[in-house]
């Protein structure tokens, strides 16, 4: 009962945040709101008992990507450009896609159903063995960090490489812009000398 209430409230707040993100024209506010959206997602994962996934979501979504977006704003523009009104076609497409997705979920087993096929395949094996195999109390942690340890290591390497790439791109851009500034200043000084 209380879990359902918490889940529904978290979902409602996510929808509210998404609406704010769509409505807001100031990009800085959009970045902050997307950080909050990611924090809400992390809370939802914690409510579902997947604390590792929640922690990744909080660190990447609310931490790193907020800062990256801020860097992008500093290099580009602070407010959204006005776009021409698009008519009703996009709303229609969104509504039809949403209805198709909802229709698709009707066949699925209900939330938390222990007889669902996904919970009958290898999950009982993990539940039975992870305590004696790995001695980690949380099964999700045991699967993520031990049974799929190499997979997680590969993911970490990919994310790390991507982070290094983005940081190098951003610092390169900044240096080039600084050089341009220096050139502009020098040109101005030369022109002032010519006039004198």
């Amino acid at each position: 009962m209380i879990e359902t209430f918490i889940n529904i409230t978290l979902f409602a707040m996510q929808v509210l945040t998404a609406l704010f993100i769509v409505r807001s024209k100031r990009l800085f506010s959009v970045v902050m709101l997307s950080g909050v959206f990611s924090l809400l997602t992390a809370l939802f994962f914690v409510a579902l008992d997947a604390v590792d996934v929640a922690f990744t979501e909080a660190a990447v979504g609310a931490g790193i990507s907020t800062v990256l977006m801020l860097g992008t704003i500093a290099l580009t523009a602070r407010t959204q450009k006005k776009t021409a009104p698009t008519g009703y076609l996009p709303y229609l497409v969104v509504a039809v896609t949403g209805a198709a997705l909802v229709y698709g979920t009707l066949d699925m087993p209900s939330f938390g159903d222990p007889m669902a096929p996904a919970h009958q395949h290898v999950a009982p094996e993990y539940l039975a063995r992870s305590v004696t195999d790995i001695d980690v109390p949380n099964v999700v942690t045991a699967i993520l960090a031990s049974y799929r340890g190499y997979d997680t290591l590969g993911e970490t390497a990919v994310v790390f490489t991507a982070g290094i790439g983005v940081l190098m791109l951003l610092s390169g851009l900044r240096r080039r812009r600084d050089e341009d500034d220096v050139k502009i200043v020098k040109n101005k000084a030369a022109k002032a000398k010519d006039r004198a």
């Binding site: 707040m13 509210l16 945040t17 704010f20 409505r23 807001s24 800085f28 506010s29 902050m32 709101l33 950080g35 909050v36 924090l39 992390a42 809370l43 909080a58 609310a62």
Partner: peptide, 24 residues
Amino acid sequence: LARLYAGPTLYDRVLAVNSFGTLT
């Protein structure tokens, strides 16, 4: 959340995100 959406200055928004983290 309302303060984050409406907040007129930058510092309102930064503080709102920080408070939201604390609430999390």
